[in-house]
Design a protein around this nucleic acid. Structure first.
Lengths: 148, 148
DNA sequence: GCATAAGTGGGGAAAAGTGGGGGAAAAGAT
DNA sequence: ATCTTTTCCCCCACTTTTCCCCACTTATGC
């Protein structure tokens, strides 16, 4: 399980050095085989390949006549991209995905359980700021009886 | 299964070079025999020929008295076109389909499970942007309990 | 402070993309 | 029916990009 935030930079070829703390577990878990895709929040999602497969299968099994579903399929499956870590522990972020998430040089990699999120740092900070003004009244009922 | 997006261009003869990553599996799966047709979203659908057959049979089996069904049959079966990859891995996109999807030079080929979608690049970007403003309230119940 | 490991950048080889020309086959016209 | 014209397809060569590997620089720990 991934947690925590790492500040990183893309080199001028668009490569991302995966932090050492994740590298060994990624190599043993999926031989460095990752899947990158687009998230509606305009960041990228980074899955170990085995964790991605069931999600893609679920998406592909849904009816393509529902416009909402179709859009999700296009966003997630359509942007999904297989990438391999090179032997320096780097991955190449494909240009279309870099463009989608507005990644320039400074990015943050954020652990989120089974996956990681990759954000342009400004967008990440903005997103954190925005989340602070949430009203309690908007809390989903799933969280009833739950406290920190 | 196809996934991911590839930026491509049609040459001035209207030919499309199929990306290498798909070429081998297309040759072994369907001997380079593809079916292109029109999609209601104004893109083109690209099926390996064996994957297309059951879809066409299903469409033909539906009642042609329902106007919606009839329209679907006309759009999909009516526009379906057999194409072969040449030995440089290129396919010729028939002019009527090129016109339908507004394909000029810059296009994107998008993996969607058993099929591929071919978009004029501007239209694709527009479609992705539009999908980001989706409301949760519109999510189909199929997705209850599903998360990324 | 030195040694080892990690991060960064660049260069080169191989493969993939691109474009054009020539030939064959088909269609149309006389 | 034959000749002419056009379209389509296949092949070859050139250009571009991508990926992989190596070397240098920086950080960290002993």
């Amino acid at each position: 399980m991934f947690r925590g935030i790492t500040q990183l930079s893309l080199d001028n070829k668009g490569r991302l050095t995966v932090p050492t703390k994740y590298r060994d577990s990624l190599i043993s878990f999926c031989a460095g085989h990752l899947v990158l895709t687009a998230d509606p929040s305009k960041c990228l999602l980074v899955y170990p390949q085995p964790a991605w497969e069931p999600i893609e299968q679920k998406l592909n099994s849904l009816s393509s006549f529902n416009p909402q579903t179709r859009s999700l399929q296009r966003l997630l499956v359509g942007n999904a991209s297989d990438v391999e870590m090179d032997n320096a522990g780097r991955i190449l972020v494909p240009p279309p995905l870099r463009q989608f998430a507005g990644l320039k040089k400074n990015v943050v990699l954020v652990g989120q359980g089974a996956k990681l999120e990759l954000w342009e740092d400004e967008k990440w900070n903005q997103q954190i700021e925005d989340s602070l003004i949430l009203k309690d009244s908007n809390m989903p009922s799933e969280l009833d009886g739950f406290s920190l």
